Amino acid sequence: MTTPSKHLLLAVSGMTPQIITETLYAIHKKSPEKMPTEVIVLTTATGCERIEKALMGEDNQLDQFCIDYGYQPIKLEIRIPEIGGITLADVRTDSEQEATADFITDQVRKLTQDDSVAIHASLAGGRKTMGFTLGYAMSLFGRPQDCLSHVLVNEPYDQVPDFFYPTQTTVYRFDRDKKNRLDLSKAEVTLGEIPLVLMREGLPNDLIAKENTSYTQVVKHANQANALNTETVVVTLDKDQLTIYCNDMPVKLSAEQFAFYAWMARDTQDAFGEGIEPVNNDMSAHELTKRLRSWLISSLPEVSGVDYTAFELPDLIDEADFPAFKLNVSTLKC
């Protein structure tokens, strides 16, 4: 696995851009070596206005945080879902929810393509549905280097509209009701990390690489994979496409991978309950290839004047015929 050289904060936000600087402060306190150099915020058009006012432009809170705690300026990028080319002002209707879920899912898919980047995803802002989708998308596409968190601010500082992070010096601000005057330097911000259930390895590479992947598509595939078992699975081998279909879910393979899988499937069919002689740690790649060649040659029809032992492995694969297989718990039939 590539060691990440860059840290990125990915957040959903609505009307409270404070969660961005609060999260950055919490990372500063807990793991300053993982301070993001870039922040990407997924929000609505309405949320964008709040973020631009608070965290962009002159004398903004994000730059002030970097100055106060000794960090280089952090790049901030805002991304907004659209329907028909029109940015969403809010997420209230079914169509808006669907578009937002697809947008968040595809953003996570794209960002996790770069192994040099470690993503810190925050669920603290935005609509609850946005936070849920971000968390689920991180489980679907996230990698071991990525993490998920929620940031918490202690009372009564969570009721201060102008609170963005604990200041280094005494700064007083009133709470929302204008009744209490509080020292922002005394606030406590906690980063609650949420363990990720990583499911990326269960997704086909084609789906991970597919542009504009929808939330519904990915969840459907994950549910289909979870439903597979030895009583219901049907495996079909398509030699022309070098693809294996598990209950109609395609798995694209190289020619050698396809032949290896067909070898295991055919031998399991011919000797159900026994299968092929297991590969052991002492077996070299050459020996394994030799065994695969022997199986391919044994499965080919005898043709006068043709010496299959002189064929290269790719040529043997071209000549071989691979049937479909139906697997269940007690039988294995062609």
Rank of each mutant, 00 (worst) to 15 (best):
Q168E: 14
T216N: 11
C246G: 12
E193Y: 09
C246E: 10
L242N: 15
L191Q: 14
Q168G: 14
L184D: 05
T216L: 12
I244W: 08
N247G: 01
N247W: 09
T170Q: 04
T169H: 08
S214Y: 05
L182Q: 08
P204W: 09
R200F: 01
T216A: 13
D175P: 05
V189R: 08
T190L: 14
Q224S: 13
T243S: 03
I194Q: 00
T232S: 04
T167F: 01
H221I: 15
E188G: 10
L237Q: 12
L198C: 04
Y245D: 10
L207P: 02
G192R: 06
E193A: 07
A222W: 05
E193C: 02
L228F: 00
N180D: 15
V235R: 07
N247Y: 05
V189E: 04
L184A: 01
L196K: 03
H221S: 09
K220Y: 09
F174M: 14
K220T: 14
I244L: 08
A227E: 07
N229M: 04
P204Y: 03
T236S: 12
V233S: 07
Q241V: 15
E188T: 10
L237W: 02
A187G: 14
S185F: 01
K210Y: 07
K178V: 14
I194T: 04
L198R: 02
R176A: 03
Q224G: 05
E188H: 03
C246R: 11
E211T: 12
K220M: 12
T243Q: 06
R173A: 02
A225T: 06
K210P: 00
Q217C: 06
L198H: 03
H221M: 05
L182Y: 03
D206E: 13
L191R: 07
V197A: 08
L203T: 04
V233E: 05
K186Y: 05
N223G: 09
E211S: 12
E201S: 13
L203G: 06
Q217R: 05
D240G: 14
T230R: 15
N226V: 15
V219L: 13
V189D: 07
T230S: 15
G202A: 01
P195W: 11
V235P: 07
D175K: 02
D177P: 06
V235E: 08
L198W: 02
A209N: 13
V233A: 02
